[in-house]
């Protein structure tokens, strides 16, 4: 994992994601999941590109099932986009997440007007 991506546990989710001032992208991933392995380098690259503008976090689904379930995440990988604790872009999931699609979602997340 590169320096622009941080792994968090379910217990840290409220503080790291919901209470974050900066927009956050969360990647729910699993082991034995080739699409997750394929997404990882793209996630790292986009994280580096948007360093300072958005935060990029990973949650290991197997160890944080309760959180995944609460959020209705049932497939790996799934990307969620939060701004001020609210999901502000459509989730991306599965084997077909392209780097350009991830970038486009991050850009739309950044452009979203501020809530609250």
């Amino acid at each position: 994992m590169n320096m622009h991506v941080k792994e968090i546990s379910g217990a840290q989710f409220d503080a790291e994601v919901l209470a974050s001032d900066a927009p956050v992208v969360v990647d729910f991933y699993s082991t034995e999941c080739p699409p997750c392995e394929a997404l990882a380098p793209k996630f790292d690259a986009v994280a580096e590109q948007f360093a300072g503008q958005a935060r990029f976090l990973k949650v290991f689904r197997q160890a944080n099932r309760e959180l995944a379930q609460k959020l209705g995440v049932t497939g790996s990988p799934t990307l969620l986009f939060f701004r001020r604790g609210i999901e502000v872009a459509a989730r991306l999931s599965g084997d077909e997440i392209k780097r350009t699609a991830l970038k486009a979602s991050v850009e739309s997340m950044l452009q979203e007007p501020r809530h609250g």
Partner: peptide, 29 residues
């Protein structure tokens, strides 16, 4: 080739939210 979509209502909405195309990825849950 890639998996064919069913093309029925709700498929897009629940992709990754109950519909899966990869048993090794999601089966254990």
């Amino acid at each position: 080739a890639k998996p064919r979509d069913l093309g029925v209502p709700g498929e897009t909405k629940f992709k990754g939210g109950g519909i899966s195309y990869c048993a090794t990825c999601d089966g254990a849950y």
